[in-house]
């Protein structure tokens, strides 16, 4: 962990100035709140599995969306990449009868390709990424619907995966924990390495801090931006594939919830909307907070509308507290 610094050691002051601290406090508070209301079931395995399943799905997408936001870009197209990739996999395997790996690879390539086009449009034109990816979202949505109707003649395609594929991508461990939780943990490790350990992470921060300075410092800013968009396309497609394997069918609609949910997780996790700051641990905490609220509502038997209000309020609080913690981090200096 980063908090255990060699020379600085562990101290409350250092902890408070870590950018993730706000997110951690938020998560603990939200969890305690719903644990009190939801009772034993929420604290036990059923509760954990239900929110972890949600967290894993949105979390896999939130990671690259967060990296993009740190680099100063938005990706709204993830919401349509999820159904596009699950439809690709389901049509190839369920309708045409290809083996599962063919469908999976093709679906992931769809995600990479959409991300590539996003990246090219953002770097070659002056259109802001928010607009580019919204446009891309609608275009991909339309294409998915068009091809599904053209090929299958309906808006949903079913597919029963073979046991191995099912156990890798759509299995429920103990009948409760979706295997994608493990994939999520894997992705967290990879993204943690990318952002915080490899030199690439420095480039991402620099890109979000000041694109011009980053370019004049010799960072291949366009390539990096395109790669990040491809990463988010890939992860969204991965979730699409996992959904087919889990629910054994693909729908044209669905997936739109990922757009705002992924951004919400990232922002609650302390990533700066304008880029330049954020961390993987923060994104993970933000995702967990979001998932706990999302599922805690049912366990606490609250009106689902109240859940939306809580998430909205949480978002505002998160941005406010993140600003506060960032100011603290700015004024941080080592004690002598």
């Amino acid at each position: 962990m980063q908090t255990a610094r060699g020379e600085a050691g562990f101290s409350l002051g250092t902890l408070i100035r870590r950018p993730e601290t706000g997110s951690l406090i938020g998560f603990v508070a939200v969890y305690l709140f719903f644990a009190a209301l939801g009772g034993a079931v929420f604290i036990g395995a059923p509760g954990w599995s239900s929110w972890l399943n949600i967290a894993a799905e949105v979390g896999i997408i939130a990671l690259p969306v967060g990296l993009l936001m740190i680099s100063g870009e938005f990706d709204m197209s993830v919401g349509s990449i999820v159904p596009a990739s699950s439809m690709t996999a389901a049509i190839l395997c369920g309708y045409f009868g290809f083996a599962a790996p063919v469908g999976i690879v093709a679906a992931l390539c769809v995600g990479l390709a959409i991300g590539y086009v996003n990246g090219i449009l953002v770097t070659r034109t002056t259109i802001p990424s928010l607009i580019v990816t919204i446009g891309m979202m609608f275009a991909v949505m339309g294409l998915t619907l068009g091809f599904a109707v053209l090929i299958k003649g309906s808006t949903s395609v079913s597919y029963v995966p073979d046991p191995l594929t099912k156990s890798l991508l759509g299995h429920f461990i103990n009948g409760m924990f979706n295997v994608s939780i493990i994939w999520w943990i894997g992705f967290v490790a990879v993204f943690y390495f990318l952002l915080h350990i490899s030199p690439l992470g420095n480039w991402i921060y620099a890109l979000g801090g000041d694109r011009e300075s980053a370019r004049s410092a010799g960072i291949p800013t366009d390539k990096l931006t395109i790669a990040l968009f491809m990463l988010s396309g890939f992860n969204a497609a991965f979730v699409g594939v996992a959904q087919v394997m889990t629910y054994q069918s693909a729908q044209v609609a669905g997936g739109q919830s990922f757009i705002f949910n992924s951004i919400m997780c990232v922002v609650i996790g302390g990533v700066l909307l304008t880029g330049g700051a954020g961390s993987v641990i923060g994104i993970v905490l933000g995702t967990m907070t979001f998932a706990v609220v999302n599922q805690g509502i049912f366990f606490a038997a609250l009106d689902p509308n109240i859940g939306s209000i809580i998430i909205g309020a949480l978002l505002l609080l998160a941005v406010l507290s993140n600003d506060k913690f960032r100011a603290l981090a700015m004024s941080y200096s080592k004690k002598k």
């Binding site: 030199p199 420095n202 480039w203 921060y205 620099a206 801090g209 000041d210 300075s213 980053a214 004049s216 410092a217 010799g218 960072i219 700066l272 330049g276 700051a277 960032r326 700015m330």
Partner: peptide, 20 residues
């Protein structure tokens, strides 16, 4: 200064030429 306010001194000093 052409530097990055939210990066650490060490990180911003070596932007583009990171020691590894």
């Amino acid at each position: 200064g052409g530097t990055f306010p939210l990066m650490s001194i060490g990180r911003s000093f070596f932007v583009g030429v990171e020691p590894t």
